[in-house]
C-alpha cells in the first residue's frame, strides 16, 4: 500500500517537487497564477529599496485626472526631489509627452490589447528609465478600475484617484481596487458646486471596502488641496 494516500497501488515518481500518480495521472501543482508576476514585483521592490526610491502605483478610470495630477506634482516638487514617471496606456505616447513637458523623464509603455501594467513591464521600464537614488517614481497605470487591482508592480502602495464627476458609488462598484489602494485621491473638487456628488457618502463607501483608506481631496487643475497630497507624499519619502 502506498504511504502517501493509502491507496492500493500505482507507481509513484517524483515530479518537480510534487508527486504524480500513474493510476489516474494527477499532478499536484499548487501554484499561484500570479506567482511569476509577484516574483518580478518583489525583484522590483528590492531594487527600489536598495536605491531608496519611493514608487507609487496610480490607478483610476480613464479621465480621472491622473496625468494632470502628475504634472502638478512634478511642478510642486521640482528642485527638492527628482521625479520620474512610467506611463501605461493601451496606445499613444500623449501622456509621456505631457510629463516630459512638465519637466520629468518619462517612459511610455503601450500595453496594446492589455488592460493593465504587470511587474515585468514595469521592471523593464525601470531599467531603461534608471531613476536616481532617493528619487520618486510615479507609475501611471492603464485607466481601468478593475484589472490593475490584482497586479503588484513592486510599488510602495497603490493610490486610487477618483474624480467627483464619476459618482460617489464607484468604491462600491469597483471594490477590489479601493480595497487594494492605501489612498483615495478625490480629484476635481472644484466642480463640486455643479454636481450632486456627496463627498461624505463616497468616503463612507470607500471605508466599507477598506476601513483604513486615507482620503485626500483636491483639484489638480486649480491646486486646491494639493498641499495635502504633497505632505502625504513627503511623509512617505
Amino acid at each position: 500500500m502506498c504511504t502517501v494516500c493509502g491507496c492500493g497501488g500505482g507507481k509513484y515518481e517524483k515530479f518537480g517537487g510534487s508527486r504524480s500518480r500513474e493510476a489516474n495521472r494527477l499532478v499536484k501543482v499548487e501554484q499561484d497564477i500570479l506567482a511569476k508576476n509577484d516574483a518580478h514585483a518583489e525583484r522590483n521592490r528590492a531594487w527600489l529599496k536598495a536605491r531608496n526610491i519611493l514608487a507609487l502605483n496610480l490607478v483610476s478610470s480613464p479621465g480621472s485626472g491622473k496625468t494632470t495630477l502628475l504634472a502638478k506634482t512634478i511642478e510642486e516638487i521640482r528642485g527638492r526631489k527628482s521625479v520620474s514617471v512610467i506611463e501605461g496606456d493601451q496606445q499613444t505616447s500623449f501622456d509621456a509627452d505631457r510629463i516630459r513637458q512638465a519637466g520629468a523623464p518619462a517612459i511610455q509603455i503601450n500595453t496594446g490589447k492589455g488592460c493593465h501594467l504587470d511587474a515585468k513591464m514595469v521592471g523593464d521600464a525601470m531599467m531603461k528609465l534608471d531613476p536616481g537614488e532617493n528619487s520618486l517614481l510615479l507609475i501611471e497605470n492603464v485607466g481601468n478600475l478593475v484589472c490593475p487591482a490584482s497586479f503588484d508592480l513592486g510599488e510602495a502602495c497603490k493610490v486610487a484617484i477618483l474624480s467627483v464627476t464619476e459618482g460617489e458609488d464607484k468604491p462600491m462598484k469597483y471594490p477590489d481596487m479601493f480595497h487594494a489602494a492605501k489612498v483615495m485621491v478625490l480629484n476635481k473638487i472644484d466642480l463640486l458646486p455643479h454636481l450632486d456628488f456627496e463627498v461624505e457618502k463616497c468616503i463612507d463607501y470607500a471605508r466599507r471596502v477598506n476601513p483604513e483608506i486615507l482620503v485626500i481631496q483636491l483639484s489638480a487643475r486649480t491646486g486646491e488641496g494639493l498641499q495635502g497630497w504633497m505632505d502625504w507624499m513627503e511623509g512617505m519619502i
Binding site: 504524480s20 489516474n24 495521472r25 494527477l26 499532478v27 499536484k28 501543482v29 499548487e30 501554484q31 499561484d32 497564477i33 500570479l34 490584482s150
Partner: peptide
C-alpha cells in the same frame, strides 16, 4: 485564491 491546483495528464 487564484491557484493552479492540479492537472490530469497522460
Amino acid at each position: 485564491e487564484m491557484r493552479v491546483k492540479e492537472i490530469e495528464v497522460e
